[in-house]
Design a protein around this nucleic acid. Structure first.
Lengths: 224, 224
DNA sequence: ACAAAAGTGTTATCCATACACCCATGT
DNA sequence: ACATGGGTGTATGGATAACACTTTTGT
């Protein structure tokens, strides 16, 4: 069914979602294994076709729920990929999104929907189906740049965290080392986080102060 | 799971293009007067439906050529508007773009395609059809922010220009006054422009040095 | 001669960077 | 006791921001 021959079919619309989380000190994305012909065995970013009565973003949220069992995480539109031959099954225009999850374990609940679904470090990705290499690159670039001029990193963090954990999150996403003292000075001056008064327990070494974000709303702020 | 089986109803795709130029010291966009019912008499951003065999960006370029007679200007995808009821004629998903023109006079050649087509200052816009208010706001915001971290302003400038003209371009887009001496110091330090050795002629007052951009390729640079 | 835009430097302040040692805990 | 990550301050350099007068031309 090479979709574009009869009448006014224009294009079929789909969404693809790059779902980020930090797992074991790596920035990871969630991939599913394809079963469709042309790409059987390849990994791809989760996604699906849009229903006629459904807003585009609702479609992204629906597929995000299906893949990662997450329904209230950060989701932002990325880019619309509209080349004619990007899908060998027919003309499919894809609106891509990226999502940020504070906990990679979220998705474990109903993972039976897919043949296989796994977190992959962005430094060690398998070959991807369609133009999903481009989609993923786009997402990483957007995430990196947005991290430097907004507070969206809170979407990748648990409710409470240590300053070292927050610094590691920045380092992992930006892929560069930061100076501990300068980082703390800067992050504390931004009025984004506050100490909870509690400290880590049960871990080896000196306990660390636990912080939380004062507001979980996106703000535009010069971070780094 | 979807309307994939119901004769490919899904969505019709269109593009909308916010076309910018600086005219008489104002940042302006090109608008066309609607003739379709529901919005007869309203102004709207140029655009049109996508052909089945056409990449999305090609559709934007085709409509840009039709509206502004421009075929090699800067064009960048903005955002995809996918609400179900954004078009009263039916379900139309629109991929929006913005374009930058170095000369507002370009479009005068074949303006007979439209009922009416005019430049409007962004400070004095008429009521717009569809969700084009949102599209325009999005475009202005993107242009402003991109002006501060890249050199794309060259797409709004003629081949040669004075430093005062360049400064006014920044001021008009960013909507704020800049200090003349600091602006010159900064812009000259960025290695983006070079003196042509020529000066303005025929104008009143002291002649100004004419500059040109060394490279007309987009670069990411901290400007302001 | 006058009106109007072009052109030109210095200073003070803020921010980013570089850098090393003691502290508190679990083992 | 020791290994390990947590926690802390200062000094320097570079960039930004504030600020006013002289020059050159057309009229």
């Amino acid at each position: 069914m090479s979709g574009a021959d009869k009448g006014f079919q224009h294009a079929i619309l789909a969404t693809d979602i790059v779902i980020f989380a930090i797992k074991e000190g790596s920035l990871c994305i969630l991939l599913v294994k394809m079963q469709k012909e042309h790409f059987r065995g390849y990994w791809a970013v989760p996604g699906g076709l849009i229903n006629p009565s459904e807003p585009v973003e609702a479609c992204a949220r629906r597929n995000l729920l299906k893949a990662a069992n997450a329904d209230d995480v950060y989701l932002e539109q990325l880019y619309t990929f509209g080349e004619v031959d990007r899908d060998p099954h027919g003309r499919v225009v894809s609106v891509s999104y990226y999502a940020l999850m504070p906990d990679w374990r979220f998705h474990l609940s109903n993972s039976t929907e897919y043949n296989a679904i796994e977190w992959f470090s962005i430094d060690d990705l398998p070959e991807l189906a369609y133009d999903h290499d481009d989609v993923v690159l786009f997402a990483i670039e957007r995430l990196r740049s947005k991290l430097t001029y907004s507070n969206i990193i809170f979407n990748l963090m648990p409710d409470t965290f240590t300053l070292s954990e927050l610094q590691r999150a920045y380092e992992v996403v930006l892929n560069k080392k930061l100076d501990k003292r300068n980082f703390r000075k800067k992050i504390l001056s931004l009025n984004q986080i506050a100490s909870t008064g509690r400290r880590t327990v049960g871990k080896a070494h000196r306990p660390a102060d636990l912080y939380r974000f004062k507001r979980k709303t996106v703000e535009i702020i010069q971070v780094l």
